[in-house]
Simulated scan of single mutants.
Amino acid sequence: MKKVLVAGATGGMGYALVQELRRRNIEVIAFARGEQKLKELFNNMPGVAVRAGDALLEKDIIHAADGADVLFHAISFPYQEWETTHPLALKNMLRAAKGQEAKFALVDNIYAYGRQTDSPIDEAAKKEPHTKKGSIRLEMENVIKTSGVPYLIVHMPDFYGPNAGNTVLNETLKNVALNKTANFIGSPSLAKEFLFTEDGAKAMIELALRENAYNQNWNIPGVSPITGNEMKDLLQTEWNYSKNFRTVSKTMIKFMALFNPFMKELIEMMYLYEQPVLLSGKKYEEQIGPLARTSYKQGIKITLDYMKSNR
């Protein structure tokens, strides 16, 4: 792996992938829609070529991918656009990979797993998504597996970290950074897992470097499950956070959905805040090695420091 494309480079996981790839002296093409944001993040980083373009346009992806031997898909779209955007962007990336005779690596979530009664789950868990978004992710997986392109499908839980602006935990932490009342989705007594983006990027790149890891699914868990109450205690102890967590319930989201298209789409995913799906990293650790496991104390510190220095 000498030169790679990271599509969605200005998002949280895309940003972490670019950073980790450069730590390993791998040349990177950073691709995203926003040229200004790309330049702000990467223009002064040696070994990174900035390419602005639209993943929904095949010619843009093919042009950007020229010379790449692995294409990382870290693209995100607003929930309400998934049905039309994700299948098209995936088709374009797979065509570009095939044209380059390159490999393909998808940053995936846990939606295709649907409801799971046993946790943590491994890669053999049956996938029967009961939501529209879970069905879209499973269909994407099936398209990848029949594409003829060598692939990695890497499932990750909700993540947080530097530049991960549109994630559940980062939405909480951005107000913590301002010492304002923070919104926390779901019951504060229910334990969920969150993955620090730098840990996810390290795991994914380790997989991408190994020929025998391809044409498989991989689960990358967070460091451990944590409740909202435990997180609040950590913030109060380590950062003197003096405000409260404002619990955002399903009822509140239903009300906000009357005025907000994103909230309307979030309703069907609220099962994850009632019965969390936790991932097992056993397969990775048995076949690849120990997972990077940044503590919440350290990961949140890095995230808050980034937020405060990039207001």
Rank of each mutant, 00 (worst) to 15 (best):
K2L: 13
K2N: 14
A9E: 01
G12S: 01
G14Y: 02
Y15V: 02
Q19L: 08
Q19N: 14
Q19S: 13
Q19Y: 09
R22G: 10
I26C: 07
R33P: 11
E35N: 07
E35L: 13
Q36R: 14
Q36Y: 07
Q36D: 15
K37L: 05
V48Y: 03
A55V: 13
L56H: 06
K59V: 15
D60W: 05
D60F: 00
D66M: 12
S76H: 12
P78G: 00
E81M: 12
E81W: 11
W82T: 05
T85S: 15
L90V: 12
L90D: 00
L90C: 12
N92F: 10
M93G: 11
R95M: 11
R95I: 13
R95Y: 12
Q100E: 13
K103G: 14
A105I: 09
L106S: 07
G114R: 09
R115G: 00
D122R: 03
D122V: 03
K126G: 13
E128D: 13
P129R: 01
H130R: 00
H130Q: 10
T131D: 08
T131P: 11
K133D: 07
E139F: 10
E139A: 12
N142E: 08
V143E: 14
V149H: 13
I153D: 07
I153L: 10
V154I: 14
P157L: 08
F159E: 10
T167W: 06
L169F: 01
L173D: 05
L178Q: 06
K180N: 02
T181W: 11
F184N: 03
G186E: 05
K192P: 01
E193K: 04
F194N: 01
L195D: 09
T197V: 11
E198M: 14
A201S: 06
A208C: 09
L209Q: 13
R210G: 02
R210H: 00
E211A: 10
N212Y: 08
Y214P: 14
P221T: 00
G228I: 08
E230C: 03
E230F: 04
L235N: 08
Q236G: 01
K243F: 04
S249D: 03
T251K: 12
M252S: 15
I253S: 10
K254D: 04
K254H: 06
M256N: 08
L258Q: 14
K264T: 02
L266Y: 03
E268T: 02
M269Y: 00
M270F: 14
L272G: 10
L272K: 14
Y273F: 15
Y273M: 10
Q275R: 07
Q275W: 00
V277G: 01
Q287P: 06
Q287V: 03
I288C: 04
P290F: 13
L291V: 04
S295H: 15
